[in-house]
Amino acid sequence: MALLVKHMLGLEQVEREDIETILDTAASLQEISYRPVKKVPTLRGKTQVNLFFEPSTRTRTSFEIAGKRLSADVVNFTASASSLSKGETLADTARNLWAMRPDILVVRHSAAGAPHLLAKLLDTPIINAGDGAHEHPTQALLDMFTVREKKRKLSGLKVVIAGDIAHSRVARSNIYGFSKMGAEVWVVGPPTLIPPGIERMGARVSYRLEEAIPDADVIMMLRIQLERGAGSLFPSLREYAIRFGLNPARMRLCKPDVLVMHPGPINRGVEISPEVADGPYSVILDQVEAGVAVRMALLYLLCAGAEHEDTDQGRT
């Protein structure tokens, strides 16, 4: 029942079997959040360190709640990129952390591969909470969880991911995840926001929303990441919103049971109009709720997995 992987660095290396274990476990744990006492003692005495080098209240809070519902001691360690430029490297930070004996590490960093560097330096299980434009596996897992709860399956669905694919770790993780579960993934955006070779990751490419969405079961809208320089890749937000925004007119092209998703934060009026974000197709709040359950499942599965490696020898 333990996962095949020791760390959750990305969905690229994760087998379908593990994804199913995580989603099933999350489905079992979701009920805890509805109890009068929203807490189980599973990770009592374990220390979970949330190491955030990039500001993210939402993801950090979700991991914090997940850890606390499992009774872990949750420590938040927020470092800005500026403290790194003062000479302390990620490796230094890692060694300092090691001295605190964490049982699990949740890492968010603006540099792709930063969690992999920590995984090489530390023996602790690591969950990648988003690294640069590389992967954001827990977001994809909660997205899959949300879709599976609504559609009762993932296999055979058509999932359209639209927007700033080039800079999106959410897109990458979702392409791997949904493809592994048997869904068909499309990516849509202007050519300058579609990175080269994305087809080889298992996605189909379209430059027009109208072409992709009519038979879609899921439409996932992504934010334009201006902070990563996306702004120079199209003329203006106005033109972008007109061409690539999900609005009521475009929703009329869609299947009646389509799900509209967004990993947040939303730029209302740019990639998604307020009517759509708050409309009947939107499962954006379900995604947030699923996040806690999925992260609880991962914390539980990885913590327990780590323990066996160290202490279980000869125990049976």
Partner: peptide
């Protein structure tokens, strides 16, 4: 009820048990 998350031996078993739904 699934009591996996309350077990005291969860970190002492070779394969930790599948967590089922509590209803």
């Amino acid at each position: 009820m699934d009591v996996t998350m309350y077990r005291d031996d969860i970190f002492h078993q070779k394969t930790h048990p599948k967590v089922h739904k509590t209803e």
